[in-house]
Design a protein around this nucleic acid. Sequence first.
DNA 1: ATGCCTGTCCGTGACAGA
Length: 260
Amino acid sequence: MLIATWNVNSVKQRLPHLERFLEETRPDVLCLQELKCVDDAFPRAEIEARGYNVAVHGQKAFNGVAILSRLPMEAKAGLPGDDDDGQSRYLEAVISRPGGGAVRVASIYLPNGNPTGTDKFAYKLGWMERLARHAAGLLRLEEPLVLAGDYNVIPDERDVSDPAAWVGDALFRPETRASFRRLLGLGLTDAVRACDDSAGLYTFWDYQAGAWQRNKGIRIDHLLLSPQAADRLVGTEIHRRTRAWDKPSDHVPVSASFDF
DNA sequence: ATGCCTGTCCGTGACAGA
């Protein structure tokens, strides 16, 4: 089974790229972030025509997450822990596997948190705390679990081309990295890092200042796996080529393949 | 030092129909 995640930066603007990626890579499950549209504006018919079930948790103008699945799924929107949080950043689905059993997949759009020293950064850290609490509960189920998405976290110095330029940024602040480490400490495995410990594995390049051309990237899109998923991990891929397509998202898809 | 680029929303203008 191939499970992928992609921050598309407007699903309406990126529909041709999305269709091309589905056609070429044929993931069984694709988690999307930054739809930037309400549920009714999601191009559901186009995706369903390609053989995918669609679960959408949209929002006007900002945020918005979705899960596309070739297999049947039951989806639930929202990250528990704050009833006043109106931002659409979390969608979870239980996906039925052909051979029996299931895999639980979440599409995550973790808050950016800039500028630091504002309520935006506090919201980010609070959101990460809620995610950790929820993940701890899911891990107790002892099932295959994939928490995939745009974490807006640079875990380590080897995950950024110019670490000095990111010191003080909400994506690289010590508190942010510590919170991400606590998440891993619950027993989650960073899928890409389980397969490759080299530097320069980037998933995002800014639109500005020729970041892509100069390979000034960062790794912020992650798939975190429960032990039951990590034990079945076969490999991962960062789909860099999509960043060179015309009018691309600033993120590229990341996928993990499993022997279930 | 700041903008760099992209996208959405909103307001405005063009236009069609009353």
